[in-house]
């Protein structure tokens, strides 16, 4: 039964997530809450791992969440399911490519989807931050790196590498 749910949920993500890799996260966050396959903390781990392994983050997220919730078969199902809507849509769209982008309804739908997709991501970002407000050390490091991210543009690997190292040092040597 879990495989059916996995297929259904990841098919939905493939069909309704707009805006690239991180756009899958709000859906995964919701799935975690509904099915209990993984916790919010697990999801944070998955995001970190998906961001430092090769390949599109969306594929990595599907593979990892599938793996956590349904083993190797689960990850295969999740990864397949998330790409099937694209496959179907694009085979259809390829025949009417030029007209597609100029179409009134396509433009109107995208007009509504852009702010909505941004709202989904913002809501998860906020909830993640709120869940850590009682850890003042984490919040301090967060604010420092957030400020940095506003000032200069750095690669995801930079943030995950440095914060991972800080965590390793702090926790291994019991500094705090």
């Amino acid at each position: 039964m879990i495989f059916v749910h996995l297929f259904y949920e990841f098919f939905k993500i493939g069909l309704f997530s707009f805006g690239g890799g991180y756009a899958t996260i709000p859906f995964l966050y919701h799935i975690g809450e509904v099915y209990g396959w993984f916790s919010a903390v697990d999801l944070e781990r998955m995001i970190a791992i998906a961001s430092v392994t090769p390949g599109p983050v969306g594929v990595n997220m599907a593979t990892y969440t599938g793996l956590t919730s349904g083993g190797l078969v689960g990850s295969l199902i999740a990864t397949t399911a998330i790409t099937i809507p694209s496959l179907i849509l694009i085979v259809i769209i390829s025949k009417i490519l030029k007209k597609f982008r100029e179409n009134f309804y396509v433009k109107a739908v995208i007009y509504g989807l852009k702010p909505a997709s941004c709202a989904l991501l913002a809501s998860v970002a906020l909830q993640m931050i709120l869940s850590k407000t009682n850890d003042i050390y984490a919040m301090g490091i967060f604010v420092a790196f957030l400020t940095m991210s506003f000032l200069t543009k750095k690669d995801p690997l930079f943030y995950l590498g440095i914060t991972g190292l800080i965590g390793l040092i702090i926790k291994t040597f019991h500094i705090i």
Binding site: A48, M128, I129, F142, S149, I166
Partner: peptide, 9 residues
């Protein structure tokens, strides 16, 4: 630590 980095991302 990486959980903090993820929030930044």
């Amino acid at each position: 630590g990486v959980g903090i980095g993820v929030m930044v991302l």
